[in-house]
Simulated assay, not measured.
Amino acid sequence: MLLKLAILISGRGSNMRAILRAIKKQNIPIVPTVVISNKPSARGLRIARGLDVKTEIVESKGFQGSRWEYDQKIIGVLNKYGVMPKNSLICLAGFMRILSPEFIKKFKNRILNIHPSILPAFPGLDAQRQAIESGVSHSGCTVHFVDEGVDTGQIIVQETVKIKNDDTEETLSKRILAKEHKAYVKAVKLIAEKKINVTGRKVKFLA
Rank of each mutant, 00 (worst) to 15 (best):
I163C: 08
I9N: 10
K54I: 13
R110L: 03
M16L: 06
S137F: 15
N27A: 13
V150R: 10
R97E: 01
H144S: 03
R43E: 15
G140V: 04
N27T: 09
L172E: 05
D52Y: 14
K162A: 08
I176L: 02
V53Q: 01
K174A: 14
G11H: 04
R97Y: 04
V35T: 00
N79W: 00
L125V: 15
M96P: 04
Q154M: 09
S60R: 09
I191P: 06
G82D: 00
C141H: 01
K194Q: 15
F107K: 04
F205D: 14
N15P: 12
G135T: 10
N15S: 15
E59R: 14
G65S: 01
I176G: 09
K54L: 11
A187N: 07
A6N: 10
A207I: 14
V203D: 02
P32F: 10
P120C: 00
I74V: 03
I36G: 08
D167E: 04
N197G: 11
S134A: 14
S88T: 02
I36F: 07
S137H: 11
V34N: 02
K186W: 07
V58T: 12
A121H: 12
A192S: 06
F107Y: 10
K25C: 00
I19V: 15
F145I: 00
E193G: 05
G65C: 09
P123V: 13
R49S: 08
P32Y: 11
S139N: 07
K186A: 14
N79K: 09
F103K: 04
Q158P: 11
G76P: 06
S100W: 01
A178S: 12
F63I: 10
A207N: 15
N87W: 06
G76F: 04
L8G: 03
N27I: 02
R46S: 14
A22K: 06
A183I: 12
A6G: 13
R110A: 07
K4N: 09
A178L: 13
I118A: 00
G82V: 10
T168P: 06
S10K: 01
Q64H: 10
G94Y: 05
D71V: 06
V185R: 02
K86A: 13
Q130I: 11
E148K: 11
F63Y: 13
G94H: 03
Y81V: 05
R201C: 08
F145S: 07
K194E: 15
V31I: 13
I176W: 10
Q26D: 15
K194H: 13
I47V: 15
L78G: 03
L125A: 15
H144A: 03
A131H: 06
V83S: 02
E56Y: 08
R97F: 05
V35A: 00
N27P: 00
K164C: 04
Q130N: 05
L125W: 00
K80M: 05
I156Q: 05
R67Q: 15
E133R: 15
Q26W: 07
I75N: 09
W68M: 13
I98A: 01
G153F: 04
